[in-house]
């Protein structure tokens, strides 16, 4: 293949990668919107809005399928290397994680439906702040992905501990609300479930952040904010 041919082929490939990125972005925005709508339904005790959220989950699943199919086709046809390879493999992983964010949004919407019919909990404690931080992490993880921003991604990973602490505090808060107001037991249990789902969403946002760091810096970062567990340096290493 002449250099001109190969440059032309890679322009077309860049176009295909761009389309895939846009699909992934659309999927991520949909998931973020689903989480926000479900949380709004919780707050406003709006069972109908909650049901609308539940009904829209299929769109995210459909986007995931399309992304998966396109990615597999590109892997087979282009046999990508280096940065392109990392991007495509991570695209599969990211879309799976986003699909799960969508599932958690559905869980929250289901809580919202039950909450709409239950006696409210007088004091939801840190739940609002927890929702704020978790959705912020999701939003920033997506932004980091769009902008290939490893710094922002690292920042997202660092916020995960805060969400875990909020989860504990909401759990304890709801336990004490249950003892004080036995009538609010049903709602308090649902609030615990909401918190649990938010905690999972924050975990998935952290995964996303780690994936972005990998795409950008080719390093594997796992579980703990900013900490590099292994990187792909092989200098001087001879045994396979």
């Amino acid at each position: 293949m002449s250099p001109a041919d190969s440059a032309r082929a890679s322009r077309h490939f860049d176009q295909e990668l761009q389309e895939l990125r846009e699909l992934l972005l659309r999927m991520a925005s949909r998931a973020e919107e689903q989480v926000r709508n479900a949380l709004a339904a919780v707050k406003q005790r709006d069972a109908q809005a909650a049901q609308r959220s539940i009904d829209r989950d299929g769109e995210i699943d459909a986007l995931e399928l399309e992304i998966e199919e396109r990615t597999i086709n590109l892997l087979a046809r282009r046999q990508p290397m280096a940065g392109d390879l990392r991007t495509l493999v991570m695209t599969l992983k990211i879309s799976t994680d986003i699909e799960r964010v969508g599932d958690h949004a559905v869980n929250i919407a289901q809580c919202a439906k039950r909450l709409a019919e239950a006696l409210p909990v007088p004091d939801v404690g840190d739940l609002d702040r927890m929702a704020e931080v978790s959705t912020g992490m999701l939003r920033d993880a997506i932004a980091a992905f769009i902008d290939r921003d490893a710094e922002l991604a690292r920042d997202v990973c660092q916020r995960d501990d805060q969400v875990d602490r909020y989860n504990d505090s909401v759990f304890r808060g709801m336990l004490s609300e249950m003892t004080r107001y036995p009538g609010a037991i049903v709602a308090a249990l649902q609030m615990m479930l909401v918190a649990r789902n938010l905690e999972r969403i924050a975990d998935l946002a952290t995964n996303l952040g780690e994936d972005v760091i990998y795409i950008v810096e080719a390093r594997t970062v796992k579980h703990h904010a900013g900490e590099v567990v292994s990187d792909v340096e092989t200098e001087g290493e001879f045994d396979q």
């Binding site: 190969s6 440059a7 082929a9 890679s10 490939f13 990508p80 290397m81 280096a82 940065g83 392109d84 390879l85 990392r86 080719a218 792909v232």
Partner: peptide, 16 residues
Amino acid sequence: FTAPHEKHTEDYVTGR
């Protein structure tokens, strides 16, 4: 082929 250190290598192996 997965994570070269040099930008030049990256551009070559990705066909850019």
